[in-house]
Design a protein around this nucleic acid. Structure first.
Lengths: 102, 102
DNA sequence: ACTTACGGTAAGTTACTACTTACCAGTTTG
DNA sequence: CAAACTGGTAAGTAGTAACTTACCGTAAGT
């Protein structure tokens, strides 16, 4: 499911967002991420699964290392959703401001 | 606190997002929202507080009715964050694709 | 003033989620 | 083949968050 919903829920968690931000800067192995973050390696692994299901990252195995890198799909879906939202919000906001002057 | 974080966390919940989407379409009273949604009125009231703290909505009392309407601040902060993110993501993604061809 | 409508707050319950340790599977190196 | 390194999975725990009912203010109408 590549909905904006899963991406939104995935990025709502601070730890998971931190992991994602690291991956945005470039491909990262699981151990690399765990070394930097204040949580255990299994925790990182579980977060990566959520990010993967949200189509925010993709993984590829290189030897024994599992490297995760960005998947633009999820972030794009989220951005599209918010953009549509943003236009709608501005229009409604303008209409409200106008009706206040009547 | 008008961080993108609070807005992100606020919109991660389906019920709360549904409430927000109604408000985006135009100002809504608490009772109106509760009548449409599958949760109780106190639940709606609690969600509205979270949305308010995230600066996604503002409330104004009109007689006995409490009307909530859009506050562009929170949505704007979230959008700014994602936009910055998006550019960074595209650049990193392009760089990765390029290095794959070496 | 009494009643009705509106909505925020308190307290309690349930469900989920982020985390831990322990374990297991695959990969590379000696 | 064995030892070391990689990382995903299982099981259990603790904290949190979304929801309920009950209650209490405040505003408008009769």
């Amino acid at each position: 499911m590549a909905t904006y919903h899963t991406a939104l829920a995935a990025l709502a968690d601070p730890t998971r967002r931190s992991i994602f931000e690291h991956i945005v800067e470039g491909p990262r192995a699981v151990g690399e991420l765990a070394a930097v973050l204040p949580v255990s390696r299994p925790a990182v692994s579980q977060h990566l699964r959520v990010l993967k299901e949200a189509e925010l990252v993709v993984d590829s195995q290189i030897g024994a290392r599992h490297v995760y890198q960005l998947n633009p799909s999820g972030l794009g879906a989220l951005r599209t959703y918010l953009d549509r939202f943003w236009d709608q919000a501005l229009a409604a906001y303008a209409a409200t401001a106008e009706s206040d002057e009547e």
